[in-house]
Simulated scan of single mutants.
Amino acid sequence: MWGGEELDLDAYLARIGYSGEVAADLATLRAVHRAHVESLPFENLDVALGRRVPLDVKSLQAKLVGRRRGGYCYEQNSLLAAALERIGFAVAGRGARNRTRGDALTPITHALLVVTVDGQPWLADAGFGWQGPLEPVPLTDGARVEQDGWVFGVRVERVGVERVGVDRVGAEAEGVHVLRALRPEGWTDLYSFAPHALYPVDFELMNHYSSSHPRSRFIGQVVAHRPNAVVRRALVRDGLTSVGVDGAREERRVGPDELTDVLAGEFGIELDDEEAAGLVRVQRAYSAEV
């Protein structure tokens, strides 16, 4: 389903710095997921450059494994799905609505995975950027996990649940799962998704919208995220934000002349000369608008 037979698993494991044994068990799932998240940065740079974003395994391997590049959710989770499938896991896709933007009912544009181990479903997501989990989260109502001080939880919403400003009756089906993060101010919803399986062809459709539709938040701006156990970083347009596990927050602006150095130093993204020049132009164009 996910093209695992086409993946060079040894090269993938080397890229994410994983050298342990691999088996279709929970220990491997946790270790591979964490290594992937901490090694492959979230970024939209090909979208910002107006390039096509292919999701076939060979293209993903060339970009994310062969080069020191990253990708956004469709790329990250398609690659992770291929690796997990190759190892022997049962992997299914899901589509989620982002809830970090307030109470508006957003379209289903986020792609994630559900991996089943010994009959237990686990939420696996290497593509939600700096706000996402480091390791899989058990997909059970009331689940709460701590990952190096970062706390995530899952709850199930039923029909009839309303949120401020949005009547979700009929908008989302019964049994919608919600991934949440515990922050100093309390629990925050990250995204919601129904127990409806998606497939690579569905990821392709969502990818087309996010990479080309004029209303997509990835068009015309630079985005890069890097979660890890100590500090999570996000670059959106010209704003660089760092958040520590204690909630401490730092923000600064990134000008066009320092963009490529920040992408390399803070996010581990290496660009060729053509990419670097193109992204600097994107950054200058944004700076000229504000």
Results as ranks from 00 to 15, higher is better:
E5P: 02
L7P: 11
I16Q: 08
I16S: 08
S19M: 07
E21Y: 11
A23K: 07
A23R: 13
A31N: 02
P41N: 03
E43V: 00
L45F: 05
L45M: 11
R52I: 05
L55Q: 07
D56H: 11
K58E: 15
A62P: 00
A62D: 15
L64H: 07
L64Y: 06
V65Y: 13
R67F: 12
G70C: 02
Y74F: 12
E75W: 07
Q76D: 09
Q76P: 13
Q76L: 14
L80F: 04
A82F: 03
R86K: 13
I87R: 04
G88S: 15
A90C: 02
V91Y: 14
V91S: 07
A92Y: 09
G95S: 15
A96K: 00
T100L: 03
G102I: 06
I108L: 09
V115L: 06
V115N: 06
D118I: 07
W122A: 09
D125I: 01
D125K: 01
F128Y: 11
G129F: 00
G129H: 02
G132N: 08
G132C: 14
P133S: 01
L134D: 02
P136F: 11
V137Q: 06
L139R: 05
T140G: 12
G149N: 09
V159I: 08
V159M: 12
G160K: 04
V161P: 04
V166Q: 15
H177C: 10
R180S: 14
L182K: 07
P184Q: 08
E185R: 14
E185P: 05
G186Y: 08
T188L: 15
A194E: 12
P195K: 01
P195N: 03
P200Y: 11
H208E: 10
V222M: 03
V222F: 00
V231Y: 12
A234H: 05
V236T: 11
G239T: 15
T241I: 13
S242G: 01
V243W: 01
G244T: 03
R249P: 02
V254D: 12
E258A: 05
L263W: 09
E266Y: 00
E270L: 15
E270N: 12
A276I: 03
A277D: 13
R281D: 13
S287V: 07
V290Y: 05
